[in-house]
Design a protein around this nucleic acid. Structure first.
Lengths: 137, 137
DNA sequence: TTATATGCAAAACATTTGCACTTGA
DNA sequence: TCAAGTGCAAATGTTTTGCATATAA
């Protein structure tokens, strides 16, 4: 039986693989967007309906604590999640459609280090979100 | 009677100046930090205790909608507010003490324009938060 | 005068938690 | 076997809202 990336990480971390966690891992692995808890609940129950919202939340917290996924909060009032098997990247949010575009820019990464440095700090992490609209319409 | 900056903006926008709004405007004008609704409630009621939390929320929304203040959501789960009479700036949050340091960097501003541009977007606004710890301790 | 703002308490909303039961290793 | 995970429903914490009353212009 083939294991998805998240399931592999769970095993590697020694997490107990319950039926529910497998389904959540599977859904997350095959998602390339940024779903919130409610949306994940919808996706998982369509595969296996013996999963509660509480378990979704507990599992998301577990995965987040274990560095398996990242928790975002774009300006829509709820948390959204994303696997962390990709390299670090930032987000541009289309405020008309809600679409999220990922990008990475080395210069910006370096500049932030420099700024924190100048202020006497070491960066732990950062959040850069650009809210924008499509050009030339 | 001298009017504070926020009160001036309200008048300029044609907002009705109630007793409550005056007090909230006064508190915000003399705050140079990033208080949340609960904290503002504390500060305003110490001046005039005929202000309800509901009014705080309604007034913050009103001021935000009118571009009089900015709403932030650092990673502590609540909204925090700040006047927008200063120039745009970003935030560095000390994750050990919760202290918020403001900074502005032209290069980063320009870079973001460039990135959005390359992706085919025009920036409406952005959010850059650096979470960091003090160096050499 | 009267449209708008307010206080209060109830509702809304996403998220968390206590507890009895179930399950993975 | 039994520590750890789960479902359910109730609790939480922040923010919003309906409604009767009060107030700014």
């Amino acid at each position: 039986m083939v294991k998805n990336r998240i399931e592999q990480k769970c095993i590697q971390k020694g997490l107990r693989m319950t039926e529910q966690r497998k389904v959540i891992a599977q859904v997350l692995s095959s998602s390339d967007d940024h779903p919130d808890a409610e949306e994940l609940y919808r996706r998982t129950t369509s595969i296996n309906n013996s999963i509660s919202l509480a378990t979704i939340y507990r599992t998301l917290k577990l995965f987040n604590d274990n560095g398996i996924l990242e928790k975002h909060e774009f300006k829509d009032g709820k948390f959204r999640y994303e696997m962390v098997y990709k390299d670090h990247h930032d987000h541009l949010i289309d405020i008309e459609t809600g679409k999220v575009v990922e990008f990475r820019d080395e210069e910006i990464e370096k500049l932030q280090e420099k700024i924190a440095n100048k202020l006497g700090y070491s960066i732990i992490n950062h959040r850069l979100e650009i809210y924008a609209v499509k050009k030339n319409k």
